[in-house]
Design a protein around this nucleic acid. Structure first.
Lengths: 267, 267
DNA sequence: ACTAAGATGTCCGTTGAACGGACATGTTCC
DNA sequence: GGAACATGTCCGTTCAACGGACATCTTAGT
């Protein structure tokens, strides 16, 4: 009597369960959770993480719990997850992050005081320029980027400096991603970009007029390490089209930071 | 004939293999690799990672490879590993990191200009105060801390402010870790610390004389968010023992940052 | 030049950690 | 009240992770 209905099959066909998921590693899943956080999405609930990563909620729950226990994530009172301070603390250990920043800050402040414009320091990361430090000017162009944000290599002064001094392989890699157009003045022709970069190598600076956003004019100069390699780009962003007036100041500041990094001391 | 020696046992007893390792998860191992990096150990070879984490080199090699592919680690020309920029980029998403920093920076610069001393901004993380921003003064106390570094809660002005406004549970937690003595003037008696914290809550500031390192005197004031909760501590470190002269400036600056965070606007 | 010691990188059979379906509980909205 | 959704927990199955073994390369000692 009690077995009238028969035993229901508790397990589904395993083949349908994780069919599209084979070959993924635990670490890749955990890192996918971290990847789900962006500048626009700084707080995520467990359900949002599941949707963004495609993970089952049981899996996401377990992984997020482990990441939280370690400090890679934190939980807000409401239950939502945020990137943890431990991750920020670890990030400061990167040689292109904090040490560069500490050396650059005083000079950037001088440059900011002299020009009263936005001052940015960017390094190469993948096929983008990553802004590692920034001093904003009150009355200048609204906000084009922020610390931790990214700039396109072909359409920003800092990006062009970094791209000009990188290898040919990065240039082809950047072309493969396509030269996105932001304004009518954006350089989208590979040959034209190559000429611009050559000019940048010759003069030592990049000057960009409204290639990324209207009314934004910028100048950038390279920052080199003790071996003369370009490790960062220093740029000033202004609403004034007469950016050539800023060239000497930016070059000077760039060299000032480079000297602080030991440029020229060990040839 | 050919089987004279017999088949050699290729596998060792599995029980001896990973006996002390049972129950550890892949993620805990990967995070242990990241944990191996500290301010003192910013570059690590694979062999060093193995020694520090206790992982087999095959495992560490695979995990470090995955972390590198994602950007959590980077490899230097010599083959050594460093914390990757991707980790720094993610870290900037923490609400107590960048947003706080952006609001605080201008005020910190004003405070630095007014006092010509080290200016620090610290938040609570576990049982330490984590320095999230710092402006160094050229002629002041050598170097007591740095961005990404940690201060003891009981022996630094910023730490005392954070501890004074945290719950009772953090106080007992801090006691459990022990009140480490750094100088003859360090408060190591729990009852004395409790009195100091009560005084700090009453006056709104913490004043510390050589409790962490000789010749270092510091004053700290709280920074509050829109709900009046203490989210950070602003401190000035000086060689001058007459720190009471700095109290009004630090309080003013702390309130200035708080106002930028919306303190008082939504009661 | 030969050997030893140590680091990095790769392979593959074994096995236990990770997966995900199912269920329980809590919350929100109509 | 109950439908929809989110979070949290349990447990049997299985495939990804582990680590011993081996290969290669570099550095050090004699």
């Amino acid at each position: 009597m009690t077995e009238a209905e028969g035993p229901p099959p508790r397990r589904k066909d395993p083949k349908t369960a994780n069919s599209g998921d084979r070959g993924r590693t635990v670490i890749s899943r955990a890192l996918a959770i971290l990847d789900a956080f962006t500048l626009e999405r700084r707080e995520l609930t467990l359900a949002q993480i599941c949707r963004l990563t495609g993970l089952r909620h049981a899996t996401a729950h377990r992984l997020a719990g482990e990441l939280t226990a370690w400090g890679a994530l934190e939980r807000l009172p409401g239950g939502a997850y945020v990137i943890g301070l431990r991750l920020w603390e670890l990030g400061t250990l990167n040689p292109r992050g904090l040490p560069l920043r500490v050396r650059a800050m005083p000079v950037m402040e001088d440059l900011h005081a002299a020009t009263r414009q936005h001052v940015q320091l960017a390094v190469l990361d993948g096929t983008d320029a990553l802004v590692v430090e920034r001093i904003s000017a009150a009355g200048a162009v609204p906000v084009v980027s922020q610390v931790g944000g990214r700039l396109p290599l072909h359409a920003s002064a800092a990006g062009q400096v970094l791209l000009a001094h990188a290898g040919e392989e990065l240039f082809t890699e950047a072309l493969r991603n396509g030269l996105a157009r932001f304004t009518p003045r954006t350089i989208t022709d590979p040959a034209a970009l190559r000429l611009t970069l050559a000019e940048c190598r010759r003069t030592g600076v990049a000057v960009v007029h409204e290639e990324m956003s209207p009314d934004a004019h910028s100048v950038a100069a390279p920052v080199t390490d003790s071996k003369g390699r370009v490790v960062a780009a220093l740029s000033v962003v202004s609403v004034d089209a007469r950016t050539h007036l800023l060239v000497p100041a930016v070059v000077l500041a760039g060299r000032g930071i480079s000297r602080g990094l030991g440029a020229g001391s060990t040839p």
